[in-house]
Design a protein around this nucleic acid. Structure first.
Length: 717
DNA sequence: AAACCTCGAGGTCG
DNA sequence: CTCGAGGTTT
């Protein structure tokens, strides 16, 4: 590097370009020496200075960012990774409610599900919702063996070494604790401790935004000794797997945790009515500011554990609990502009650019505006939102972070609207490819019709293809995709999914090498090719999801994969399927098979059929299949129960459970629940007052039992 | 009508 | 990781 360093602001574009090139090479060289030869020739401070300089120049000339920029490097800096832990009992999130009315709905839905008589008392617990990170602590033979974060609810990160440094968490449980117990709760940091920590950290130039992030950051340290120096605490309030029954009520079990040495929150209380619940909510809300830690609401749970078991779970949350959130903090700021983003489906989403403002502990600069109607003040079903006030550039707007997370524009301060502010005109052409953008009848989104010629869509489709839950190719992020897509060199270009897999071969034949020309670095190039090769065999459902067919997300891809087992079978049926043309028509057998897959309706089925009907899609898939093999879906291991695989119909009135509960129970046991009796029905459960369905069942010779016999039959399962 | 799914978005940390 | 809007299925 030259001795005289010109201030970044004085650099010309050409100078900046030259310097970025030099920095990329230089930093790569130091990385190589540092990691490979363990013989660094400059100090860490000098090295940091180089990277800072690189970042500063890139910030001023974003268009000059090189694909091999040190700021994008993959695989050079070892990232903090923890091993993963599968939760034996999933760690679900809670449903949210925001008003007293919502609370009443929640209680009503619980009562309805249990068919609980109106005059009979139903007890709930209510406790402050701590704003921290949920954690699962597994004890075997009364010793702490694993501590895991929630992760996606199924699999979390193993942070045991760090958790052991928290004084409030017992390493050892007393003799009366079960052999196996997962105690769950919240790791958090008190506000005063957070301020003190930030004061200490201020010298390093990096501080945390709020106690919650502070706790999260402290827990993800590679070195447990760093975590030890952070004032983390823990409240126990729930549990996962246990080897024995812990008690009869939520309240009693949590109190037992206290006996074992855990800290429990003293704000937890039993409530016997909606009135008591709301009174306690108000009490906690009033106390909120005086508490030494952050809370973001109140959690209600059905107290009796036998009732919790009956209520069970929805796909992502228990039916027996909910979180009553406090009103989010609000702020006003100025809307400086509205940009349009084009997604992989062509959806044009308006994004608000805001004067930076701090809300709820973080700086907000962007907020989604969802769609054209939302800006105009029109809601989902045509009714006015914000009393019909539209949003204009220049407006002063009221914002909040929905659920304390996602920035949202709530309203416009009309008194502050500039006199020259004009209504926002939603573009009717794509900002990227200038194609017409159309709004389908009855839809809220406007979509670019550019399809193949729209590079914004193409890039988004590729990003989707390589994303975490699709092909999951490490080292191909947003920046890299954009670079390969825009590359002029045929040996480097990636325009379609198949191109990803031919990249290495094209490279080898070409004179331009990725590690030379763009200096990705030998290591990162090797890693990238390895990551790509790893995906040449991939689960059918991931492959299908990656294709980006409309309405086929993760869940529907899984459903289709489970049904068709192989990709070729799905393709065969989809190409042969003929959708119904008018009302009387039912389509052919292939259509009916597709449409008959559980959870797949006409709209989704049609979307799949249309995808395979397009020549260019078929060509793209064909090209991809020469490189990638989707593996046949493994048949799901079904648990054998007396009713698994059976189609069951409930009719008449049920006395011990509601219809919903009966349905959930039957489905949990692997049965399919139908609404009407047909020759496909295997079993009818009839209560008093059963009429035509019972009659039909008898006529068809289908087995009929009553509610008690149902319980006898499935009692063991 | 309720529950579920898709899709696109924002912010923080490592 | 999380949210909200809009759409789909049952």
């Amino acid at each position: 590097m030259s001795d005289i360093v010109k201030p970044v602001e004085d650099l010309t574009e050409a100078e900046a370009q030259a310097e970025l090139a030099r920095l990329a090479q230089e930093i790569a060289e130091h990385d190589r020496r540092y990691h490979g030869e363990d013989d660094p020739i400059i100090s860490d401070a000098e090295y940091d200075a180089l990277r800072l300089r690189n970042a500063a120049i890139e910030a001023r000339f974003p268009e000059l960012v090189r694909a091999d920029s040190p700021s994008l490097k993959v695989g050079v800096v070892p990232s903090a990774t923890f091993s993963s832990v599968a939760h034996s009992v999933p760690m679900l999130s809670l449903d949210n409610v925001f008003s007293g009315e919502d609370v009443m709905d929640f209680v009503a839905s619980v009562r309805r599900f249990l068919a609980w008589p109106a005059d009979q008392e139903l007890v709930f617990t209510a406790e402050p919702k701590i704003d921290g990170l949920s954690m699962s602590l597994r004890y075997e033979n009364r010793r702490l063996v694993t501590a895991a974060t929630r992760g996606d609810g199924t699999t979390g990160e193993n942070v045991t070494a760090n958790i052991r440094t928290i004084g409030e968490i017992p390493q050892q449980l007393p003799a009366d604790a079960p052999d196996v117990i997962e105690v769950r709760g919240e790791v958090y940091m008190r506000r005063d401790d957070f301020f003190a920590l930030n004061q200490r950290m201020a010298e390093t130039g990096r501080v945390f935004a709020n106690p919650r992030n502070s706790a999260a950051g402290s827990l993800r340290q590679i070195d447990p000794e760093v975590t030890r120096s952070r004032p983390l605490r823990f409240f126990a309030y729930a549990w996962g797997e246990t080897s024995e029954t812990l008690g009869e009520t939520q309240f009693d079990v949590v109190r037992r945790f206290a006996d074992w040495g855990f800290t429990i929150n003293d704000g937890m209380q039993r409530c016997r009515s909606i009135e008591e619940i709301l009174t306690h909510y108000k009490a906690i809300e009033a106390e909120r500011a005086a508490l030494p830690y952050d809370i973001d609401g109140v959690v209600y749970k059905v107290d009796r554990l036998d009732l919790q078991a009956r209520l069970g779970f929805r796909s992502r949350s228990p039916r027996w609990a909910t979180a009553h959130k406090f009103a989010a903090e609000k702020a006003t700021t100025v809307l400086t502009g509205i940009d349009i983003q084009v997604g992989r489906t062509g959806a044009m989403t308006p994004v608000a650019r805001l004067e930076p403002v701090t809300v709820g502990g973080v700086v907000v600069t962007n907020a989604t505006l969802h769609n054209e109607d939302y800006i105009r003040g029109i809601g989902n079903s045509g009714q006015p939102i914000r009393e019909g006030r539209d949003i204009r550039v220049g407006d002063t707007v009221l914002i909040q972070r929905a659920g304390d997370v996602i920035p949202q524009i709530l309203d416009v301060v009309m008194e502050k609207r500039p006199a020259d502010a004009v209504p926002y005109v939603f573009p009717e052409r794509c900002p990227d490819c200038d194609s017409h953008a159309v709004r389908e009848e009855g839809e809220a989104v406007r979509r670019c019709t550019g399809g193949l010629i729209c590079s914004a869509q193409a890039v988004e489709r590729l990003r989707h293809f390589v994303s975490r839950n699709a092909l999951d190719i490490e080292g191909l992020g947003e920046k890299q995709i954009a670079f390969f897509f825009n590359s002029e060199d045929p040996a480097l270009q990636i325009r379609s999914p198949a191109d990803i897999f031919t990249l290495k071969a094209r490279q080898e034949k070409s004179l331009t090498k990725l590690e030379n020309v763009d200096g990705f670095g030998t290591t990162s190039v090797r890693k990238l090719f390895a990551a790509i090769d790893e995906r040449r065999k991939v689960e059918f459902s991931r492959f299908l999801f990656a294709l980006g067919i409309r309405h086929v997300g993760e869940t529907n891809a899984k459903r289709l994969a489970r049904h068709f087992i192989s990709f070729s079978e799905l393709r065969r049926v989809s190409e042969a399927a003929i959708a119904p043309k008018d009302k009387g028509d039912k389509g052919n057998a292939d259509w009916q098979e597709l449409n008959g897959v559980s959870g797949i309706g006409a709209i989704v089925a049609e979307s799949v059929v249309e995808f395979f009907a397009e020549d260019h899609n078929r060509e793209a898939v064909e090209a991809l299949l020469t490189e990638v093999t989707p593996l046949d879906e493994k048949p799901v291991g079904t648990v054998e129960t007396p009713v698994s695989g059976k189609t069951v119909v409930f009719t008449g009135s049920l006395e011990k459970m509601s219809r919903d509960e009966a349905k959930a129970m039957a489905e949990r046991l692997g049965a399919k629940v139908a609404g009407s009796v047909s020759k496909k029905t295997d079993l009818v459960v009839a209560g008093p007052g059963a009429g035509s369905k019972l009659k039909l069942a008898t006529e068809l010779g289908i087995e009929v039992i009553d509610e008690d016999q149902w319980f006898e039959r499935v009692g063991g399962a």
